[in-house]
Design a protein around this nucleic acid. Sequence first.
DNA 1: GTAAACTAAGACTTAAAGAGTCGTATTTAA
DNA 2: TTAAATACGACTCTTTAAGTCTTAGTTTAC
Lengths: 135, 135
Amino acid sequence: MFQLSKRVEYGLIAVRHMAMCPAGTIVTTKEIAEKYHLPYELLAKVMQKLAREKFISSYQGVHGGYTLARNAEELKVSDVINVIEGKSAVTIIQCESESPQNCIIHTTCTIKNPLVKLQGTINRVLNDLTIMEMV
Amino acid sequence: MFQLSKRVEYGLIAVRHMAMCPAGTIVTTKEIAEKYHLPYELLAKVMQKLAREKFISSYQGVHGGYTLARNAEELKVSDVINVIEGKSAVTIIQCESESPQNCIIHTTCTIKNPLVKLQGTINRVLNDLTIMEMV
DNA sequence: GTAAACTAAGACTTAAAGAGTCGTATTTAA
DNA sequence: TTAAATACGACTCTTTAAGTCTTAGTTTAC
């Protein structure tokens, strides 16, 4: 109930893999899928999403594939999560993800206040953690 | 994708509510459900689970209900989560929840190492946060 | 001793999200 | 022209969370 999705997991594995290759190396989805035993189709979609958001560059055709489009030092784990899952995917408590006005229990419930701190902590850690540090 | 479940949310709201009442006050599920606009049936189940694990004491019959069975200072948010969702509900990455031997990608994938740090951080925060601090 | 107000517990249904699959189109090098 | 790659949408399957329903048991007040 409190896990990163497979898609994020696969995305991180893929990006990390690319970061470990010499800069500019073209890596194929198939290669990654085989090496880490990931379902090709699903990984392919994740790659497409990462490419669409310019985190990786795509090359079509016979010797196509992907390369990292950013420095591993600048690429944050939080970036990868946000791209794959959409913004504010990491939102500990639902109440907080909507505007306070929309929350029926907002006036009486202050439970979120301490949890928002935890939220902040998680966000900070994810923002500070670069792909480089995973290599 | 990275949220506390409603059940945990309801559980925290309930426990916090009880912590705010004078010690020994018997609180009914109905009362909490109405006050915070929570679905009675679902909340009732959460209460039962909390009672079964001795976090709260249950009293049946006409003037029955529940009271906190522990000090709010000693009751950790992590306790509530673990009781309601089962142990290791907060497990950032699946790979880590199983034994390394069972993980096919274990030998090649080291992605989890940095994420385990995050896991530790989250656990620490949840372990340190008491219900008392939510009141 | 019976009715009312509770908890207890399990079975069931529904809804949503995640994971994975399939088919087809497009691009490009050889 | 063929093979190997990306691109993309539609689809199914599975799981889990959320919520509902039903029945049983307990206690107090009258």
